[in-house]
Amino acid sequence: MAEAVTEAPVVAAERRGGPQRWLPYLLLAPSVAYLLIFFASPMIQAFGLAFTSTTGEWGLGSIRAMLGDDRFWPAVWTTVILLVVLLPLQFALAMAMSMVITSRLRGSGLWLYVFLLPLGVSELGAGILWYSIFVEQGWLNTVLQSLGLIDRPVIWLDYREPWRVIGTIVVAEAWRSTSLIVIILVGGLRAIPRDYLEAADVFHAGPWQRMRHVVLPMMRPTIRTALIVRTVLAFEVFATVIALGGTGTDVLATQANRAYTEYQDAHLASAYGLVILLVSLVAVGIILVALPTRKERGE
């Protein structure tokens, strides 16, 4: 994530000393205080909650209760599988959209606008939208039947067929959250000076060679940022799952929510939260190792 730090250019250095020296710290102070109170302290408190029981004793009681829950491991696997299926699909889609946006096709502004439409869409909104498509008497069956591909409506959201439901969740999430990757990738693509692409053209690189030898290497930091951002968010998928899977499909976030709202157990809910944190950090770690930053050697 460090390369994003350099994205905001510091326009001018304030070199004066004296009374000006404390000004930036004064300006940062409110936001720092706010994040300490409302971000850092609950984060620490989450550990406190997870490692105490409902009676307030320290111990692994809540953790054990979580691991003993029949729904725990299915929730873990569904969460991980969602990510593993979703990420490659999204990156392929996002890359295709970014290429259209940055190509010299007419109306690139319009394509950009269209592809980014889902950017502000909430999980819940997207979940209901895709529910209307996948429901038995919904759009997908209407379209398939009118094309003569099926004889009678298929039950896509069949809770006895978890794979099918997971498939619908993947589609809904791919539709909703690909635009976030698009925005990051387009930023990266636009940051590649046109000279480089033209130099590749002049020096005999075909479209695929240009992609492999010039575009992708230069986009490496961008791709890494996009991967990290998307991975962390994918572990928190929640409302889409409820909208499409009802109470029959569990992921870690729905389990955490259920622990709090139904069982009223903040300790158990925090334990689930920590599992999400843990898998997020592991995934981010894997990405960082798999795509190491080379030393800055940009011009």
């Binding site: 730090v5 905001a8 971000f39 609950p42 989450a46 909650l49 990290i228 929510n257 903040a266 950090l281």
Partner: peptide, 22 residues
Amino acid sequence: RLAVLSTRAFPVVVLSIPLAVF
């Protein structure tokens, strides 16, 4: 900057439950 960026790695789920207690 780094601290602000790294908040991305922390899921909302972890955050909201202790906040509810607060």
